[in-house]
Simulated assay, not measured.
Amino acid sequence: MSPDLHDDSDAFLSEVCWHYFVNEMTQAEVARALGVTRLRVNQAIQRARQLGFVKVQIESPLLARLELQERLQADLGVKKVLVAPAHRDAYDCHVPAGAALAKYLVECLKTGSWSKIGVAWGMTLQCAAERIARQPQPGLEIVSMIGGTTTGASFNAFGIASGFAERFDARYSLLAAPIYLSEGVDRDVFLSQEIFRSHFEKCRALDAAVLVVGDVSPRSYLVSNGLPKEVAPGDLIAAGAVGDLLGHFLDRDGNEIPHPLNQRTVGVDLEMLASIPWKILAAAGPHKVDIIRAATRRGLVDVLITDDVTAELLAEA
Rank of each mutant, 00 (worst) to 15 (best):
P96T: 01
L140H: 06
L300W: 14
E24R: 15
P85F: 08
A283T: 07
V143M: 03
G112K: 04
E316S: 15
Y172M: 09
A294Y: 03
L236E: 02
C17P: 07
S224V: 00
Q27F: 07
A294S: 01
H6F: 15
L63Y: 07
P96A: 00
E230P: 08
M123P: 09
D4P: 04
Y172E: 13
L82C: 03
A64R: 15
C203D: 08
Q27N: 02
R71Y: 09
A44L: 12
A315M: 08
V81L: 05
D207Q: 06
A274T: 03
S224K: 05
A165E: 08
D302G: 04
L270F: 06
E29V: 07
K55A: 13
L62T: 15
L314K: 00
I195Q: 15
V189N: 03
C108I: 12
D244Q: 04
L273W: 04
F249Y: 12
H19G: 14
I292D: 01
A102W: 10
A294N: 00
D251A: 00
K202I: 12
Y20R: 13
E29N: 11
S9C: 00
T149F: 01
V223M: 07
I276M: 02
L236M: 11
G77K: 04
D188W: 06
A153R: 11
N225I: 00
E130H: 13
I117F: 11
S217M: 05
V22Y: 01
A311C: 09
A153P: 00
V223R: 07
W18G: 10
I195E: 15
L314Y: 01
H259Q: 03
V216M: 10
L236C: 04
K279Q: 11
I45T: 06
H287E: 15
E166M: 15
E130G: 04
S220M: 12
H248N: 09
A311G: 07
S162V: 14
L222R: 03
A283V: 04
R134P: 10
P218Q: 04
P138Y: 04
T37N: 09
E194V: 01
G35L: 05
L34Q: 14
T306Q: 06
L76R: 01
V81D: 01
R297L: 00
P85V: 10
Y20Q: 03
A64P: 03
S198H: 07
D308Y: 00
S154L: 15
S182P: 02
V56S: 09
L140F: 02
L273D: 04
F168Y: 15
E201I: 13
L270C: 07
L76V: 01
A209R: 03
V22R: 08
Q135K: 10
D169R: 11
Q263I: 05
P136C: 05
E183V: 11
S173Q: 13
E130Q: 14
P61N: 12
F155A: 02
Q69S: 15
D302V: 05
R197T: 13
R32F: 10
R171L: 12
A11L: 14
L62Y: 14
E15W: 08
K110S: 14
R49L: 13
S9Y: 01
G214W: 02
L281N: 00
L125Y: 08
R264N: 09
V189H: 08
A283M: 07
A48E: 14
G139Q: 14
G285T: 04
L66P: 08
A90F: 09
